[in-house]
Design a protein around this nucleic acid. Structure first.
Lengths: 217, 217
DNA sequence: TAGATTGTTAATCGATTAACAATC
DNA sequence: TAGATTGTTAATCGATTAACAATC
């Protein structure tokens, strides 16, 4: 393998790999043998073709002159590099609409994510099944995590519940938190948090739609 | 005003402004008169303090030596710059769990977004009210957009429905699309699309949680 | 005043793009 | 072979960080 092992990919590279994965994955239905050129990928994703070649080289994929990159080979390398071949068991905190949307979304298993339980503090929700997943009472949290050796939690709770819950999660051994709660949470250094700050996306759009002299063309 | 009007802010700057807005907004409850130093903001958001000062300078906010930046002044400037003072009427396409979660989330009105209707192709959903918002049949789409002069649409439909719907939206005069559908959509240049590619967040986390020699410390 | 913090220029760093020889 | 496309080095660009005088 020609690329350096252990080299940590930047967030930007991981994001671009996801876009390649996503896009090639969409194209491939029966045409698994197809290939794609860096120029083609670049055009469709509105980026530079050199960038594409560099990104793919960085994960050890080599193209063929006059042909491009084998679809299947690219997908395999991205899966390997981003860890989609591992299975990550996860729990979802909060059985509200967002938590429900997340457990119901079937796409995550392509990325190795398997949601094995929902938790909610409303006792009347306990025992309910959403998207094939059982709702547990929040009091069961610590015992469940220990018993099932879970390391990833998805937070979809209100503002005020987020930090106390994060503390409980960390104490129980959770090392990754995907935070959809509308607040920042603080965790020890060894815990990875991804803040999914949905209003940022809205702000980006609003900025472009804003009327007046400041509006960009 | 000292900052250049009409200067287009980069995506990265818009995102950082949102983090400041969010964070200061959380702090301020009664303490509207408070101020925050660039060093304090930087520490809490894990970034460089010079960056904070530059960002705030770029939207015309001036701090006071030995005091910092007035909370209220920062918030006002960000609102002005990002367009939160305008009202954006929006429609949501798809009355599934995700569409429901979006209309039920109360936070968007802080950013000027007002969701005025849901649309779904399932006739049995028509007339239903979710989060205070009425579900219309998709056949009403064009007439509704025209009648209510809507320019922003939020897509929460399945893969295969996304592109055809985007085409209808564009034809009806929509100029901004917030796309939560798990596929890329193509639109004319004058239409702004924000792809909310949720699995990217998962991939970032998975990359850090991945076991093995490649895993970063 | 002394000292904390800003505002801004200069230096550094990294990411993007251009160029082009190597390859099939 | 000729020509399309890769792989990679060099050049450019922009973003981040360091340094420090200005300010209250």
């Amino acid at each position: 393998m020609s690329h350096k092992q252990g080299k940590r990919l930047s967030h930007a590279v991981v994001e671009r790999l996801m876009h390649y994965y996503y896009f090639i994955g969409e194209q491939i239905t029966e045409d698994t043998d197809g290939a794609v050129s860096s120029a083609e990928l670049a055009r469709l994703l509105e980026m530079d073709d050199t960038q594409v070649r560099k990104d793919l080289a960085s994960i050890g994929v080599r193209g063929q002159p006059r042909k491009g990159f084998q679809n299947a080979e690219v997908l395999t390398a991205i899966r390997r590099e981003l860890g989609f071949n591992f299975r990550y068991d996860a729990i979802v905190l909060g059985a509200g609409r967002l938590g429900g949307a997340i457990v119901s979304y079937g796409g995550f298993n392509h990325f190795g994510l398997k949601i094995i339980a929902l938790f909610d503090d409303d006792p009347s929700r306990t025992g309910e099944v959403i998207g094939g997943t059982l709702v547990h009472h929040i009091d069961e949290l610590e015992r469940f995590i220990e018993r099932h050796d879970v390391h990833l939690a998805i937070l979809t709770v209100p503002h005020e519940a987020a930090q106390p819950l994060a503390d409980r999660l960390v104490k129980s051994g959770i090392t990754g938190i995907w935070n959809f709660a509308p607040t920042r949470i603080e965790v020890p250094e060894h815990v990875h948090v991804r803040h999914e700050h949905i209003a940022v996306g809205l702000a980006q759009l609003a900025y472009y739609l804003k009327p007046g002299p400041d509006a960009p063309a």
